[in-house]
Design a protein around this nucleic acid. Sequence first.
DNA 1: ACTAAATTAGTACATTCGTACAAATTAACC
DNA 2: GGTTAATTTGTACGAATGTACTAATTTAGT
Lengths: 213, 213
Amino acid sequence: MRNIRKGTGESRRGKETILLILNSAKTILIEQGYSKLSMRKVAVGAEISVGNLQYYYPSKNDLLKDLLDHSIDEFMNEFERLRVGVNNDPELHLRSIINFIVLDLGNPTTTTFYPELWALANHDEYADKLMDQIYARVRLPLEDCITRINPKLSVEQVKKVALFISASMEGMTMFVGNGKVWNDSIKQMANIAIMSFLQMVKKITPEDIDKVL
Amino acid sequence: MRNIRKGTGESRRGKETILLILNSAKTILIEQGYSKLSMRKVAVGAEISVGNLQYYYPSKNDLLKDLLDHSIDEFMNEFERLRVGVNNDPELHLRSIINFIVLDLGNPTTTTFYPELWALANHDEYADKLMDQIYARVRLPLEDCITRINPKLSVEQVKKVALFISASMEGMTMFVGNGKVWNDSIKQMANIAIMSFLQMVKKITPEDIDKVL
DNA sequence: ACTAAATTAGTACATTCGTACAAATTAACC
DNA sequence: GGTTAATTTGTACGAATGTACTAATTTAGT
């Protein structure tokens, strides 16, 4: 028999409890990894009872779902702020996006949270769809800049270049992230990324992308 | 009280059992993720008893350690084969390395295994050290090519460029890997990568890397 | 103040987990 | 062929897990 979620968390008190829960869950996920994430640990971390946790999240999967949504929202909100004060110069805009994303990798939360998400996405459909959404959203302004800098590329080609740039930056997470060996070099890595991507976007031709060797 | 490992696996039979165990463990890790990896499931997959599994791997951590070693070895052996028939032209050599690594991302094992490893490395010291070793090994031939193509760069700068290239390629795993949305574009991504990295290595200056904005 | 709804706490249960251990079986060697 | 070592099986136990459920407590509306 399945429990029905009763805790809507619409009252002030309910919302506060939900925040305690999500913060606790996120802390555990980041510090110990998904394999160590349990309902009891989350309850202890949030300083509430297991029963209370179940009132808001009847199943562990419900909690995970909301945890992912919540964590993603935080990044998205920061990312949206980039839009404000967006420069009309596509090259400058591209620089600022790259700089923002690479430097964000130094954030301890980002460093550990995203690899967990990627691993999760390999076996959890919801995490997989969420990933698609986030990165599609990140690619949008990239695609806009690329189109304006290099108008010769087709829509499909622009999408692939944007994917390449976005994926490349994500790959640095495991190396220059917080606490990682190359963390000291994060500034230089951002420099290399900006120089490399900018040069590439300017010079790349449709034939470079679609040629068959 | 701690058990002492007795199974050396030196006999033919022992080696076969160990292979059954490692294959079972790897399959579970790839298909279900680390959080679902249990001694009992591994035993069932290997078609042996739990006791027998414990004979070779007294603790789960012992198994994980050997599993990581074994899986890494497979990639390394493939990677070493690149060395054979290595072209004296550094540019051609760089092309072939990039092509090999990017296309390897399409391998279903690589696609799911590496994100698990990255997530593991955030909380498991052994996985972390192993990662350092693998990627340092991958970077070696990259650094050699970069030094020869662009002799103006210092040793430290060459290392950072190699890190950038290696990390960039790893980042594509979550997007163009087997079963991923962009898997069809893996060839074009390799093209963009080759064009982008080659151009960058040729043109980048020491000032590009170390300038402070 | 009274009542109903929202929230919290506490308990209980079946399952799975890692691991310890003893006994049985098989293989190897002289 | 008998002995020893290597391998395999089976069982057991305590701890942790997800979740169902009931009762107590707090909050909000009238």
